[in-house]
Nucleic acid binder design. Structure first.
Length: 296
DNA sequence: CCTTGAACCTGGGCGC
DNA sequence: TGCGCCCAGGTTCAAG
């Protein structure tokens, strides 16, 4: 589920509980998620102190005091939650609501220091998530990160860069934006939303946003601005939260209420004066939502 | 090189 | 109540 804004929200939610804490024990409740856990993962994390949390694309990074970084990807259905000790636990209804999923609690950080003993629990019904551990110096060269494009936040992403990547590409915009080598962290939801905001069709060839000389057309600059805006808005809203994704404090996000096209097939397009209807098509095996009337 | 499709896995929703 | 089918935020392979 989690695209960049959700992972960023998870990171911010976990930081108070994890940063500066000592991992008394890392508990692995099975031998794998999508991939087998790396050798001796529990031993390599247990006893270490967490010096900070980070994020790259859709990856959560847990920096340890021995120079290693635990890498966590939440796949489609991964989530973290914080459990304080029983004395200060949430009311019964909350416990009841989550108890049925306990069989999908796969990794538990038993933490201590800077407050009472507590647990950070990784839950992932579909087990598309994965974890690895690597020395900080080797992070950028790790296969997960080596080919990633720039973050769509701040000023890292620019129209000139994207023009280089899109030049002469017949690939549809939807697929080009989902490709993590072009931009890191976008997923199905925010690609649909960014294209709608910039009035660009998901079917349109990426190369049509570049001049014959290789410069970004104005439309491409607008797309870059839309991508930055939609990501910033989603982070500001606390990340969206659909179905099985629950934020670390147990509450649901609310940005899904402001989706303009995603999961809105058949509804009226929100572009002022458009009057079109949101359609659902399938591209590369995945749903695309857009308005054919105003996205060209 | 490019693009598509299947695979990984469970659960929710819907039609019957 | 239940069965069967389709769908879901991501990534990685294999195949054409």
């Amino acid at each position: 589920m989690p695209e960049l804004p959700e992972v960023e929200t998870v990171k911010r939610g976990l930081a108070p509980a994890m940063e500066g804490a000592r991992v008394a024990r890392l508990e692995l409740r099975r031998r794998d998620l999508r991939f087998p856990f790396p050798d001796a993962l529990a031993d390599r994390v247990s006893g270490r102190t967490i010096v900070g949390l980070g994020r790259r694309a859709k990856y959560l990074l847990v920096d340890l005091d021995d120079g290693n970084t635990l890498i966590s990807h939440l796949g489609m259905s991964g989530s973290f939650r914080i459990e304080e000790d029983a004395a200060s636990a949430m009311p019964g209804e909350f416990h009841h609501a989550r108890s049925k999923d306990e069989k999908h609690d796969h990794v538990i950080f038993h933490l201590e220091g800077g407050g009472g003993p507590r647990r950070v629990v990784y839950n992932d019904p579909r087990r598309f998530g994965f974890m690895d551990i690597v020395g900080r110096a080797d992070l950028a060269a790790h296969p997960f990160f080596r080919d990633l494009g720039p973050e769509p936040t701040g000023n890292e992403l620019g129209a000139t860069y994207l023009a280089e990547r899109f030049r002469d590409k017949a690939q549809p915009l939807k697929s080009a934006l989902l490709d993590q080598k072009n931009i890191a962290g976008l997923g199905n939801i925010y690609v649909c939303e960014a294209l709608w905001r910039s009035h660009l069709s998901p079917i349109r060839a990426a190369g049509t946003l570049v001049t014959p000389g290789g410069k970004p057309k104005e439309k491409l600059s607008l797309l870059v601005a839309s991508i930055r805006d939609v990501i910033a808005d989603a982070i500001a809203a606390g990340g969206s939260s659909l179905r099985d994704h629950i934020q670390t404090d147990g509450s649901l996000g609310y940005f899904q209420h402001s989706f303009s096209v995603y999961d809105r097939e058949g509804q009226a397009c929100g572009t002022p004066g458009c009057g079109g209807t949101v359609a659902r098509i399938v591209q590369a095996g995945r749903s695309t939502f857009y308005c054919a009337a105003c996205q060209k």
